[in-house]
Amino acid sequence: MSVNNLLENWSQFRHFHPVDDKPHDPYKWAMSIDLDACTGCNACSVACYAENNLPVVGKEKYAHGQAMHWIRIERYWDEDDREFPDQGAQFLPMMCQQCEAAPCETVCPVAATNHTADGLNSQVYNRCIGSRYCSANCPYKVRYFNWYDYPSDDNVWPAEMNQQLNPDVTVRGKGVMEKCTFCVQRLHAAKGTARSEGRIVRDGEVQTACQQACPASAISFGNLVDPESRVHKQWQAQQVALDKDVQTKDKEEGGSELRGYRIFEELRPYPSVMYLERVRESAV
């Protein structure tokens, strides 16, 4: 943000719906996660540790709620007081939802978290002073703070282990906030390649680490404005629109035959992750 933004183009700078008056072009990264395919196996989470240099905090810090998993698998039970969970559990991978109207962005005092032109909610580590207001205002609580200086911790990346660190991703020091980036380093590389070839990134050309690992291929990721992309088709098939907070499915409770939804739609953060409801067999 600069003074110019304030004086001249404020209305463009912050959109009510970013897609209303300024459609994303040529990229809008988005995801869809099929909860009926997700088995809750945690492969995505480990892959994220491998790709994004996430520190292993150890038992004690985990106990204090200081874990750094950018993507976590949540396990829910049915809430009906049955003796046994005879319909199994429900798993939900939860990571930064890359909201279009992100509650975290407006509150950061130093503008360290911003919206990028391709629809990501970016976190600028260098700029972050660690006020943690973003985390306070995040309804999903998917922002993770560096409570300690993990690079200097003896047990996080001891000798040899540090050679595994991904050179494309910053190793974060203490006092900064971090979160899922949709593997922005991969997106950058793919966009660069595409640009040099005079085209846009093709669907499937770039995968996030979690998507790549997922044994059940429950995660799809891509460019929402590319009509050829799987994500675009999935969102369209589910009639979920990025800039609406009430989708077709919500209007027709029970009878829509759609299963795409976004979490906390009513808070209007306009998340970029669509989940597909888990299906339960009616015959048993």
């Binding site: 829910y76 798993f91 939900l92 409801e277 299906v279």
Partner: peptide, 9 residues
């Protein structure tokens, strides 16, 4: 985490 009955999709 929402679920739906299989005859509804």
């Amino acid at each position: 985490a929402v679920r739906v009955s299989s005859d509804k999709v």
